[in-house]
């Protein structure tokens, strides 16, 4: 089975079944993080966005891209000039969509094998 590289760390740690179980649990939480971080940035609530990015980063490094982790670092560091740039939220959206698609695709494949 050809698996996406951002999930390799997680697969190495938990194995395929464990990863399936963890990501099934994590999927709605990741979507919630995406929503809450974006909303906080829109409302210019830098502290709330930084706190959420901090928490999300504790596990996100195992299933997300280096680009998303760099964006989270900018949020944590409260780099306001970067965070206010119109492209920042757009890039954040794309990165979240990328990992969500990856997770979705992984879960669909593994559910067929381990229903």
């Amino acid at each position: 089975m050809n698996l996406s590289s951002p999930l390799d760390s997680l697969l190495d740690i938990l194995g395929t079944e464990g990863t399936q179980c963890f990501l099934t649990f994590a999927q709605p939480n990741i979507q919630q993080y995406h929503h809450d971080i974006t909303e906080s940035l829109k409302q210019k609530n830098w502290d709330a966005a930084a706190a959420m990015a901090h928490r999300f980063k504790a596990t996100a490094h195992l299933y997300s891209t280096a680009t998303l982790q760099n964006l989270l670092d900018d949020i944590i560091a409260k780099q306001i000039d970067i965070l206010q740039h119109p492209e920042f939220c757009q890039q954040l959206l794309l990165e979240f969509q990328y990992i969500e698609t990856n997770i979705d695709s992984f879960l669909k494949k593994t559910t067929l094998i381990n229903p």
């Binding site: 740690i13 464990g18 994590a26 939480n29 999300f56 504790a58 596990t59």
Partner: peptide, 16 residues
């Protein structure tokens, strides 16, 4: 810790 994703991840990993 108040991070439920970290709880879940470590619970599964450490149990093994």
């Amino acid at each position: 810790d108040d991070d439920i994703l970290l709880h879940k991840l470590l619970e599964m990993y450490l149990f093994e």
